Amino acid sequence: MLAASLATEFVSTGDGGELRYRCVMCGRGYRSRSSLTRHSRYECGRLGSRYTFTCTLCGKYFCRPDHLKQHILNIHGGAVAK
């Protein structure tokens, strides 16, 4: 599993929150393994180009597919590109 190779257990934030998983590539900490996996897959850039999702309506780039979907709903009114 990808996240297992990138995780370090328990990282304290200093503000009372506990970040249990840390990316070994950039050092960002996350509370859940799924958040670390998403970061590793889409945000960190380790697995390819960071901005791989493009809005076909306006050309804006996103690093995560859920951000592109939210953009289309909020900015373009949910319009589907042809």
Rank of each mutant, 00 (worst) to 15 (best):
M1T: 14
L2K: 10
T8G: 10
E9F: 13
F10R: 12
S12T: 07
T13W: 09
G14V: 01
G14A: 02
D15H: 04
G16Y: 07
L19R: 14
R20H: 11
R20I: 08
Y21R: 12
C26A: 05
G27T: 11
R28F: 06
R28T: 09
R28D: 06
G29Q: 08
G29T: 08
Y30L: 07
R31W: 02
S32L: 08
S35L: 11
L36Y: 01
H39W: 07
H39F: 08
S40I: 13
E43A: 10
C44L: 06
C44D: 15
C44E: 13
G45C: 10
R46C: 11
L47I: 04
G48C: 09
G48F: 04
S49T: 13
R50A: 06
Y51M: 08
Y51T: 03
F53A: 00
F53C: 00
C55K: 03
C55Y: 01
C55S: 02
C55Q: 02
T56H: 03
L57V: 09
C58A: 03
K60Y: 06
Y61V: 02
C63W: 10
R64D: 05
D66I: 05
H67G: 11
K69H: 06
K69T: 04
Q70G: 00
H71T: 02
I72V: 15
I72K: 11
N74L: 12
N74S: 13
I75F: 14
H76Y: 10
A79P: 01
V80W: 03
A81T: 09
A81Y: 02
K82S: 10
K82Q: 10
